[in-house]
Design a protein around this nucleic acid. Structure first.
Lengths: 241, 241
DNA sequence: TTGACTTATATGTCTAGACATATAATCGTA
DNA sequence: TACGATTATATGTCTAGACATATAAGTCAA
């Protein structure tokens, strides 16, 4: 369903769909934006309404737009994240469980990307980054520690964002639409520093989720989340064989 | 996108889609089965070709069927599992990585469900179950140990299946189509038994994936997979905000 | 038997209409 | 002003056609 794969199949409705998809993904048409009415697209592309309708129906099915009778079609918020990804917004995750959410910024540094930073972000050229360390808690109990890098060449606003009150994950979720992510899940045992941060014993099991996020081939952020492995469970639901 | 939600919206193309979906999900039309040609459905429902085409196109988009020109439309294998779920079929996972797959049945018991079994399977009434313990390896190195229960009231064939050569996950994947699953991911440290089974040190971190699988409200199987946490990584890719 | 060519056919896309329906906007009334 | 009825409009569904295109299947020659 990539843009490239559809681009070389030059059927009209796919071109229309790709055109609109591109404007949404680049942010040119942000969430809430009303996209042209069917009759306007009919005029613009010089085709019948059914053709435009097919393009828009597929975009609606993919949750990129929402269609409302009499009102028009609107760009949707990227709220359709998968269950595993939902863990991304830890604040939402914790409050959804009916527990009180706590957040604490441990460190924030703005620096030119080191070799290690570039490696984590998967970029080659030099750039500035923000490095953030913070802790999330549920009902005053440590829930996860987060260690994040944000590529400022992709998200310049992050340089001046106030992460002392808002967690960077939530901030990004609201300021950078439509991203893709790759997750790596593994397990470690807590070392001294981790044990202290999570208030667990040294040698206790921890779940590690590393996520690397990009949009249209541009790296956005790389984050490492450490969860106490024995006290928390991450539930993911899927359909399949 | 549930059957129930569409059933009370009695538009014709949705009824057609739901009819076909139902036959696929119940297994009446198994993977590979050719569903009726468009012109046959046109005759059956007494509608135009565009209407059945819309129903079939949506089923194709949902990966339930595959459409081939000149040949017809066919029920797809449930191979479109998410990355995390893919770990379900460990054999496929390992061979996909180009490594040699090894399998070893450790234990197999057929018994009336104990209270603990019923709890794991989430069922209330008594039933028979198969309990299987086995080990998967990649290039002769232990990759994961599996501890599984299969509810025989849902999958009676499993009582006589030969799990000494075929892993139960692969067997189920080929004998029970179109299931839903819930995953729980956590981390533990290896105890004596686990350490020996995975050939790692006692106290080493392990990743635990528990999966509970059902189809149309019927429990199928519950499985617990233990991975050495430091040597393996499970990668999941998602699209979302 | 094998390979190249032809043909039949199911799907893929598209049109120019039609009527249905939900609802935003307007208008009228209390 | 607030509320209820009316209207206008964008989307939702559907039709009865059309031509395009990939390809399974059949045909024929080497």
């Amino acid at each position: 369903m990539s843009l490239v794969a559809d681009a070389d199949k030059p059927t009209l409705y796919k071109r229309i769909r790709a055109d609109i998809e591109k404007r949404i993904l680049t942010g040119e048409w942000p969430p809430g934006h009303r996209i042209p009415f069917e009759h306007e697209l009919v005029a613009r592309y010089g085709c019948s309404r059914m053709t435009v309708n097919k393009a828009l129906s597929e975009l609606a099915q993919a949750d990129l737009i929402e269609r409302r009778r009499r009102a028009g079609s609107f760009v949707r918020r990227p709220q359709h994240q998968s269950a595993v990804l939902k863990i991304a917004d830890i604040r939402a995750e914790i409050t959804a469980l009916g527990r009180s959410y706590g957040y604490e910024l441990i460190g924030r540094k703005l620096r030119a990307a080191t070799a290690a930073d570039r490696d984590r972000l998967g970029v080659k050229k030099a750039s500035k980054v923000v490095a953030i360390t913070c802790r999330h808690s549920a009902d005053k109990v440590p829930f996860a520690v987060e260690d994040r890098l944000i590529d400022l060449s992709s998200v310049p606003n992050a340089a001046t964002a106030d992460f002392s009150r808002e967690p960077p994950g939530s901030w990004l979720l609201h300021h950078v639409p439509w991203t893709e992510a790759e997750h790596t899940i593994s397990a470690i045992v807590a070392d001294d520093r981790t044990a202290e941060a999570l208030d667990i014993a040294v040698g206790a099991p921890c779940l590690v989720i590393e996520r690397y996020t990009w949009r249209s081939a541009r790296t956005i952020t790389a984050v490492r989340l450490l969860y106490p492995g024995d006290s928390h469970r991450l539930v993911a639901r899927f359909k399949g064989g």
